[in-house]
Structure formats: structure tokens, C-alpha cells
């Protein structure tokens, strides 16, 4: 699949924003993070920045962005529509919670309940995003259980990185076990990715050139003449090949930047007593590069069954 920049930015940025909103909702409501104003402004500010810029970016890949509002109407059948509604609904409790935190200095009690509702809706939005991809039978690499699990864990992990980065830079006290939870989530994320790739490699082909043409009874089907000499929309959108050619290397670098390098940096910081404020920006930047690379691969590596009509033998 063609990896559209707008969609990669949307899924990673809004994922991190919703992930942070979820952490703020839960940890605030539990009284683990106090309703500090400076941190509140920084945390909600960056979470909403990533969510809103991500949502706007997603409308950037529409042919008719001015009609985007129409996408809210078909929630009965369409995950894309459900995502739009969930995204808008999430603004209500999370916005109220942010106001209570920043203006009233409150994040427990009633504010905490609103925060928990916001956390639930934020994760629900990430889930609906993942289901847009997971519901497409035509793309076996997406239509499996790993997609939603991956999106949710990656949103929580990137949200945690964003939150810890802000705490470190602002010099706020870290909640207990922050770094252990962050490292644990990062390892979990990498593990999910490895298991996902393993399951992809093992999964039998869902459709073949023979089932696409119905000609299995006569033997092996091979394209000898394409209908057109130049790439058309289908090939440009669904026939992306570059990633699969370099899949091994790209997967390694994705995991290196997202997990290995940031964890090594955190370890070095702990070992040599380097202040977190100095090491976190570097570690978080490395994580972000890895996350974007991973998301780019998620799109670019995925094969669509329509390519069976254009020379692929099995998808």
C-alpha cells in the first residue's frame, strides 16, 4: 500500500496525543500525578496539538477536504465514520478535564471521573482507527488481531514517552516506576511487532492469482500482458513495492530507533547519573523516528489482493 505521509502523521501523532490523554486521565484520577498547572498546560497542550494536527492532516489526504464533515454520517457500517465520531466525542470529557486540571487545579473526584471517561474515549478512538485497517479483508497484513493490539500499545507507549519527556524537561517529580513502566511498554511494543511479523510470515496466502481469475483448474496463472503500459491509480495506490524489497533492514532500523536506542540511552543515563532532562529529548526523538518508520512500514509492506491481477501470485 502507498504510505501516504498525511496518514502516517495522523496515526502516529494522534496516537501519541490520545495515549497521553489516556495516561493523564488515569494517573490524574488515581492521584498519582498532581494537578500541577505548568505540567497541565504543557501536557494537555501537546496532547491536543498532536491530536488536532493529526486529525487535520488526515483530512489532507482527502480529495474533497471541505466535505469531511459528511464522514460522520455512516457510523452504522463504517469504521472511518465511527472514528470521526469518537474523535469528536473525546474532545468533550478531555477538554473539560483539561480545564479542571489547569484552571481549578483539580484532577481527582468529579474531575477524575471525567478524566477516566476521557481516557476511555481516547483509547476507543485509537481502537476505531485501528479497525479501519483491521476490517479490510483485502489486506491480510492488516485484517488480523495484531493491528488493534499494536495501535493501542503504540498509542499508550508513545503517550508515555511524551508525558515522561515533558515531566523531565519541566523538572517535575516523576511518578513512581515511571521509567520502568516506560521501558516495559517499549519492550512490549517491540515484542508485539516481532510477533506480528512472525505471524505474517507464517500466515498462508488468503488469495492467489488462481482464485482471482478462477483458472486454477487449468494450472498455474501468470500475467503475461498488463492491461496498460503505464501505472494506473490501482498500481500507484496499492502496488507499492519498495518497502518489501528492503523489509529486513527497515524493520531492524525501526526497532533500533523505537526501542533499542532509547532504552540504551535511558540505561546510560541511569548508570552515569546523567540528568533525565538532558537524555529524554534525545531518547524520545529516537523513539519518534522509530515509530514513524514502523508506521511507514505498516503501510508500505502491506500487500493488497488487487495486485494478484498485476503479476503477484499470492497475497
Amino acid at each position: 500500500m502507498h504510505p501516504a505521509k498525511s496518514v502516517i502523521y495522523f496515526t502516529t501523532a494522534s496516537g501519541a496525543g490520545y495515549g497521553l490523554l489516556a495516561w493523564l486521565g488515569v494517573l490524574g484520577a488515581m492521584g498519582i500525578i498532581p494537578a500541577d498547572r505548568t505540567f497541565g498546560i504543557a501536557a494537555f497542550g501537546s496532547a491536543f496539538f498532536f491530536v488536532i494536527s493529526g486529525l487535520l492532516s488526515s483530512t489532507g489526504h482527502l480529495g474533497r477536504p471541505e466535505r469531511a464533515w459528511r464522514a460522520l454520517s455512516q457510523w452504522r457500517s463504517s469504521w472511518l465514520s465511527r472514528e470521526g465520531i469518537a474523535a469528536i466525542l473525546t474532545f468533550l470529557p478531555t477538554g473539560l478535564y483539561a480545564l479542571a486540571w489547569v484552571l481549578l487545579g483539580q484532577n481527582t473526584g468529579l474531575a477524575g471521573i471525567i478524566g477516566l471517561a476521557g481516557a476511555g474515549l481516547a483509547l476507543l478512538t485509537v481502537f476505531t482507527t485501528s479497525m479501519i485497517y483491521a476490517s479490510l479483508k483485502t489486506i491480510p497484513a492488516w485484517s488480523n488481531g495484531w493491528t488493534s493490539l499494536g495501535y493501542l500499545v503504540m498509542a499508550l507507549t508513545s503517550g508515555a514517552w511524551l508525558g515522561v519527556l515533558l515531566l523531565a524537561v519541566l523538572g517535575e517529580p516523576m511518578p513512581p516506576y515511571s521509567l520502568s513502566v516506560l521501558a516495559g511498554l517499549t519492550v512490549l511494543m517491540a515484542l508485539i511487532k516481532l510477533l506480528y511479523w512472525r505471524s505474517l510470515a507464517k500466515a498462508p496466502a488468503r488469495s492467489t492469482a488462481e482464485s482471482a481469475t478462477g483458472l486454477a483448474r487449468f494450472g498455474t496463472v501468470r500475467l503475461i500482458e498488463s492491461p496498460h503500459s503505464e501505472p494506473n491509480y490501482l498500481l500507484k495506490e496499492m502496488g507499492y513495492r519498495i518497502a518489501r524489497k528492503h523489509a529486513g533492514k527497515l524493520r531492524f532500523w525501526g526497532l533500533f530507533y523505537a526501542a533499542m536506542a532509547p532504552l540504551i540511552l535511558l540505561g546510560v543515563a541511569a548508570g552515569y547519573a546523567i540528568p533525565l532532562a538532558a537524555i529524554m529529548p534525545l531518547a524520545a526523538a529516537s523513539f519518534a523516528i522509530g515509530l514513524v518508520l514502523e508506521r511507514w512500514l505498516f503501510f508500505a509492506e502491506a500487500k493488497h489482493v488487487v495486485t494478484l491481477y498485476y503479476g503477484n501470485s499470492a497475497v
Binding site: A209, T213, L215, F218, G219, T220, V221, R222, L223, I224, E225, S226, P227, Y309, Y310
Partner: peptide, 8 residues
């Protein structure tokens, strides 16, 4: 599209 179907 034009396909070749081979029965080995």
C-alpha cells in the same frame, strides 16, 4: 489482462 495458465 492477459494471463498464461501453465499445467506443468
Amino acid at each position: 489482462h492477459t494471463f498464461e495458465v501453465v499445467d506443468e
